[in-house]
Design a protein around this nucleic acid. Structure first.
Lengths: 200, 200
DNA sequence: TTAGTTAATTGACAAGTTGTTGATTTATCA
DNA sequence: TGATAAATCAACAACTTGTCAATTAACTAA
């Protein structure tokens, strides 16, 4: 079925790696097809045999990484939905950390909109499916789509912030915190004012 | 103080409007400086007298819109922090709706990363300041920065989703829902299973 | 109102990117 | 091994970019 010419596999892998390397080097928008093929040591015309644009290449390259993660998560989560499973969340943060250099650029201030959007959308989609299989289609007082988006947005923003700050907390802490905030909200947190300064 | 030559104001306004118009017409990346100056009916060299890039122009143009909103919010919120003030949140959604065409593009699948990042960051920053003035610096069991980011991410994701779906709910509903989810979390929602299908 | 200042226009420049072409060489698969 | 498909190469026109000096037009302040 999935028989692909070895040369094609090789070329695409080289192009993908070249783009990833370049992203760590210079702003994404300034990277040209020339740059990519130079870095990959391939002819420029070869690029167009496989992709129509940088974005297409980037998405193809990221998809493979994603698929590997999703496969791992499927095994670990064992039917428990993401929002109440700290193990799944922790694995996500560990995965992000493992590819921190790249994600920090792609999701940061100079990040790519289509990547950000897809990440949020992907998380939301998975989450929405989990909600549907757990509660049915919109049996809850708030639409599944909204719940899923809320969760995905919060997760995305924390990942982005965590990378920007160079990961000041452990993946486990981030996972627990997100779970707590999504499940129980701010109220329990705000109620429990610590030893620091009090409001005036 | 702020005396700016009338020609400069006029030119910058024309350039900004031209870019906004073009964004509704064709993909952002394909818009050239030529396109912008053509649309604005200005000479191409004039652009470089004011901005170094499309991004700089876009940010300058958006900043003015933002400032107008922030000013309005300051008046309305009356000291009450964003996360527990449905009026502020409703105004935000109404503001988004008023500029729906533009924001739908900028925050959507083909959106611009730097715009998305700035929006999230801006909301988070305002929220973090509110948390600090209400509870002090990190007196809560969870760092203010994380709480603020969580809220900003959820708000951003819901706005983006709401635009993408062509605003299927009222601004008031969106505001109430976000507030409820952020303050009380999923637990009360999941507990209250409606009349629909039940999990198997 | 006017004189001096500053912005905008114009045409032109070299340098670089883009996407595609046809002919050729090279690697792979069966 | 021989047929097939991929990669290379050089070259193409079309376009964008940033900058320039010289000129014209608009504005501000006295």
């Amino acid at each position: 079925m999935e028989k692909v010419d070895r040369r094609v596999r090789r070329t695409r892998a080289l192009l993908g790696q070249a783009l990833r390397d370049l992203i760590l080097t210079k702003p994404y928008e300034t990277i040209t097809i020339q740059d990519i093929t130079n870095q990959a040591d391939l002819n420029r015309a070869t690029f167009y045999l496989h992709y129509a644009s940088k974005e297409e290449l980037l998405m193809d390259s990221l998809k493979q990484q994603f698929d590997a993660l999703v496969e791992q998560l499927e095994v670990e989560k064992n039917g428990r939905p993401m929002w109440e499973n700290p193990v799944t969340l922790r694995l996500i943060f560990e995965y992000v950390a493992a590819n921190g250099d790249l994600f920090k650029v792609l999701l940061g201030p100079q990040g790519q909109g289509h990547v950000m959007y897809r990440v949020i959308n992907y998380i939301a989609q998975v989450d929405e499916e989990e909600l549907e299989s757990a509660f049915g289609q919109d049996a809850l007082p708030i639409p599944n789509a909204i719940l899923a988006r809320h969760f995905a947005g919060a997760l995305f923003a924390l990942i982005s912030w965590w990378l920007e700050q160079d990961m000041p907390y452990s993946p486990a802490y981030m996972a627990e915190t997100i779970q707590q905030l999504c499940m129980a909200g701010f109220i329990p947190v705000l109620a429990e004012v610590g030893s620091g300064a009090r409001a005036n």
